[in-house]
Design a protein around this nucleic acid. Structure first.
Length: 477
RNA sequence: GGCCCUAUCGUCUAGUGGACUAGGACGUUGGGUUCUCAACCCAAAAACCGGGGUUCGAAUCCCCGUAGGGCCA
């Protein structure tokens, strides 16, 4: 496909929502797959609800996901003259007309129509205004809106994902394209922007299907060839309504903060509504670009399932090199209250990560998993210690293993294991009677990576010291 | 209320009239492995919304319901 140009057009009335990110991703993948351009446009005409802070969050989120744009950001508020110019063109062509009706008048007539069981559409009162009437309204100081004249007939368009969709024009009234304050309505601004920006494919959420015929009227009024349309399935919450805040976290930057990898979120979002031919779940961004096909997007909406996202995240974490993992987890590690810059050693940290990498569901979990590698004064809990040291001779064997380990020249996991197993065998006790207490001695936790590996990473000095502390604690209770 | 979209395991989906005893993945459950947890391996439970057609044959095509969703007020 030649010269593909697509866009994402968020309103800065909230942070970057995963639904917006989903749409952005599909546009971006389509652009990249076809070697086209991806354009960012900020739809900020709702001045009251728009803010710079939200805009920055959207930009931060898109960049974090790697969805870089080739053009923009364009701002609708900087293009108001343009919309005005085009609206006037339609007035000149008599395809649009001024409307002086006030919201109150419209509301009243809408109610009347409803009462008579008629569809509540605009009654074209102002289309047939005489010059005197118009002059009268002008004298009253009324500022007119501009309405588009909708022709009779049917409007049909071919959606890339859904096929033909048909609307009766009579179901759509002469809608406003420019409000009386000179601000264009959503549908008008979108068309002017998409046309002037040379958008070839409009890929957006299914919630815009019913806006499409309105936009088509505008293209037709100007005699412009409309772009192709593709309406993506919506993202739903577990209750099957449109995904929103009340369903949990919907902010992309919040996922970043929680320790998700951008490539994992991209992977998950890509598979929500689209399946590549291959029968696998984990894809790199390059693979997604290579395989992406808009025609294979499903029509049914998808529920955002954080459990699956979590699994995909663990898979991507495992594919990271230790060095990458270190870079990415360090900011989270630094947030931990026990973290001390002066005690930190990168080579040591690499070894720690070697043990923790495959256990991390999110990067932020490094804080809860890595603590005992970084501080020495473990505060043992009486009950836990009692639980793991049920065997009355535990104290005695711990002394023995401490001596055995002290004798080791090479403090490696293999040697530690051999030595512990030999001791257990000689004394005919199950290894776990030793392993569990030692685990608590070294980590102050009952779960974690392999004990011998932990001891090796901690090193001889720390391991023996902790054993010693643990033994004295055990003596006291 | 009107218009529009959609309908396969709990979830994401494969499926384009016969190869479907409906496949995969996440999750769940059970088992194995192990010092614990996770991982890993093995296994299991789990779905074509309902009703009519069309056809020799329907998850697949058509119609009508139903349900869910969206948009417009």
């Amino acid at each position: 496909m030649d010269n593909v140009r697509v866009r994402i057009a968020p309103s800065p009335t909230g942070y970057l929502h995963v639904g917006t990110a989903h749409t952005a991703l599909f546009n971006w993948l389509f652009a990249k797959h076809n070697k086209g351009k991806f354009i960012l446009r900020i739809e900020d005409t709702d001045i009251a609800r728009s803010s710079k802070e939200y805009e920055e969050n959207i930009i931060e989120g898109l960049k974090w996901l790697g969805l870089y744009w080739d053009e923009g950001p364009y701002y609708q508020t900087q293009r108001l003259d343009l919309y005005k110019k085009y609206a006037e063109e339609l007035l000149k062509k008599e395809l649009a007309y001024y409307c002086y009706c006030t919201p109150e008048e419209l509301e009243e007539r809408r109610k009347e129509a409803l009462a008579q069981k008629k569809p509540p559409r605009y009654d074209r009162k102002c289309l047939y205004l005489s010059d005197e009437e118009r002059a009268k309204y002008e004298r009253e100081g009324r500022k007119p809106a501009i309405r588009l004249l909708i022709p009779e007939g049917k409007t049909i368009f071919n959606d890339i994902i859904r096929g033909e969709i048909e609307f009766n024009n009579q179901d759509i009234g002469d809608f406003v394209i420019m409000k009386s304050d000179g601000v264009p309505t959503y549908n008008f601004a979108v068309v002017i922007d998409d046309y002037t920006m040379g958008i070839t494919h409009v890929i957006r959420g299914e919630d815009h299907i019913s806006n499409t015929p309105k936009q088509l009227f505008i293209y037709n009024a100007f005699g412009w060839t409309p772009p192709e349309f593709a309406h993506l399935p919506l993202l739903l919450g577990p209750d099957r309504s449109k995904l929103s805040k009340r369903h949990g976290v919907t902010s992309v930057t919040e996922y970043k903060r929680m320790g998700y990898l951008p490539q994992a979120l991209v992977n998950y979002l890509a598979l929500l509504g689209w399946t590549p031919e291959e029968n696998k779940e984990i894809y790199t961004i390059e693979e997604l670009i290579e395989l992406f096909d808009l025609r294979k997007v499903t029509k049914n909406p998808g529920i955002f399932d954080i459990t699956k996202l979590e699994w995909i995240n663990t898979q991507h974490i495992r594919r990271l090199s230790i060095k990458e993992l270190a870079d990415l987890t360090l900011p989270f590690l630094k947030e931990a209250e026990w973290f001390r810059e002066e005690n930190f050693n990168l080579e040591y940290y690499y070894k720690v990560l070697g043990l923790l990498q495959e256990r991390l569901k999110t990067l932020s979990q490094i804080r809860e998993y890595a603590d005992y590698f970084f501080f020495d004064n473990l505060e043992y809990d009486k009950d836990t210690v009692k639980k793991v040291c049920k065997h009355p001779d535990t104290y005695f064997y711990l002394e023995k293993i401490k001596d055995e380990w002290n004798k080791l020249d090479e403090f490696t996991a293999t040697n530690l294991e051999t030595s512990l197993k030999t001791l257990a065998e000689q004394n005919q006790i199950p290894t776990k009677n030793l392993v569990h207490p030692i685990r608590v001695a070294l980590t102050n936790k009952t779960i974690g990576p392999g004990l011998y590996e932990i001891a090796e990473v901690l090193g001889k000095e720390k391991t023996l010291k902790r054993l010693e502390n643990f033994i004295s604690f055990l003596k006291q209770i």
